[in-house]
Amino acid sequence: MDRFLNRLRQPNPGDDGALAVTLQGESLMLLPERAVFWPSQSALLVADLHWGKDEAFRRQGSPVPPGVLTADLKRLKHCIDRWPVERVYILGDLIHNREGMSEDVVHEIVAWRETVPVEMILIPGNHDRHLAQLPLSFIIQVMPYALTVAGFEMTHDPTSRSPSSDDYMIGGHVHPLFRIRSSNDLIMLPCFYFGPDYALLPAFSEFTGGFVVNAERDADVYLTDGRVVLPAPRRGFGRE
């Protein structure tokens, strides 16, 4: 267990921390930035960005210091620049709520958007309903609730629906976390979850909580501390 934690704490220098997995014959790169790069489609998959969440909290009286949105946008741009990305699929909850979409926030996003010349496609989530329409200046194409590409059905919350076909679903919504307990330590890390019927992406925003998932026998879980992606330790290993 401690050896596992050490691996998390000391990633190989020079490594970008990504981990390649094969899913339904497709090769996917799991990125420590909490995103997935899909080489055959030149696509980046992200879920639960919750833009403007910190702003929403300030507006209702929690003194959250500014900086979250800027850091999140920077990280997203880093992924887009680092990998040969042509389009970004956003698997729902792009924005947090209406209050969070203040003038300043919209301004910052529009300015950022000009620096990322890629196609952006949103499959809306429950939070996106708070806003009747995204600002046009975001230049984000909005899809219906699901979109199938190369045998993967992308949708915000795959846990609550059955697939429209036999397609494997990919989504977010849950903000999956994995809990690791060692002799004197307890950590919770965002994780990628690959179950029998669907995959769940970690929430992209750093300003999100989450829900602890278990590594069932028929599921693969990969976790990340922001620098490296690793397979989750198996049962009998620091589990409660």
């Binding site: 910190d54 929403a56 909290f57 209702q60 929690s62 959250v64 210091p65 500014p66 900086g67 979250v68 947090h96 709520n97 939070h127 708070h130 750093e206 300003f207 999100t208 909580g209």
Partner: peptide
């Protein structure tokens, strides 16, 4: 519910930005 916030998140954000 979108207005509830976990103190752990605030703690992280404070540690980082304040």
């Amino acid at each position: 519910k979108q207005l509830q916030i976990s103190s752990g998140l605030i703690y992280d954000v404070f540690s980082r930005y304040d």
